[in-house]
Simulated scan of single mutants.
Amino acid sequence: MTRAPAVLRFSDPRRHGVHEVTDAYGVVARIAVGRTGNRFTVTDAQGALLCAGRTSRWRLPRRWDVTGPDGSPLLTARVRGIARTSVEVHLRRGGRLLVRGRAWRRDLRVTDEHGEVVLTAVPRAPAWSLRRHGHAVQQAPGRLELAEVVALVHIWGRTREEESATAAVGALAGGSAPG
């Protein structure tokens, strides 16, 4: 597995049908998302598979399973909370991570089982932007593999998209969304 660079940028919008992940030297990964959004694949700059993730068709029980390039399990991510503000991650190589964010925001912070910050990500555009899913990501050196980082940030982005869609449906149905 490839260690992730300390700083990564996740692009939005898509280029040639994929979201690009770059470091200071160029593209390090590409994320292709299935039509329904319940599957994704991540390849490296040369096109080799890094990982693939999937969730159930209806995203219940809000669990993502991610496999490595050989099809073996890489990580499992379970979305927690009504407002989808945290994701519990079990790494198959050992260890547990907690991804936390704030409701109605897209930033995130990942901590290990000891409470140490492993990774942070902040959006690169305001929430009302058409390019709202780009992130600037920084991780503690040598803690996570590239496939793990890309999968975590992508799953968080999908979780935030689901929350935004749920809020929009609620607002249209007569509910109200926090301001």
Results as ranks from 00 to 15, higher is better:
W156V: 01
G53A: 02
R63P: 01
A4D: 00
R59D: 05
P123A: 15
T76P: 07
L98K: 04
G142H: 14
V122S: 15
T43P: 03
S129L: 04
A140K: 15
L75Y: 10
A165K: 09
Q138E: 15
V18K: 10
L91P: 14
V122Y: 06
A171C: 03
T36C: 01
G94V: 12
S86V: 06
Q138N: 12
V118T: 15
L172P: 01
V89Q: 05
A32G: 14
R106M: 00
P123V: 09
H90T: 14
S11G: 14
T159Y: 02
A4M: 02
H154A: 00
A24M: 14
A52Q: 14
C51H: 00
P5C: 10
T85K: 04
A151D: 06
T120L: 13
R39E: 06
A136G: 13
R124Y: 03
I31R: 03
V89T: 08
E145F: 11
A32E: 13
A52I: 01
R80H: 10
W128L: 11
D44Y: 05
A177W: 07
G134Q: 05
L108H: 04
V122T: 15
L74Q: 09
V110L: 07
P13F: 01
S56C: 06
H19L: 09
S72D: 04
G17F: 13
T41N: 07
H114W: 06
A173M: 08
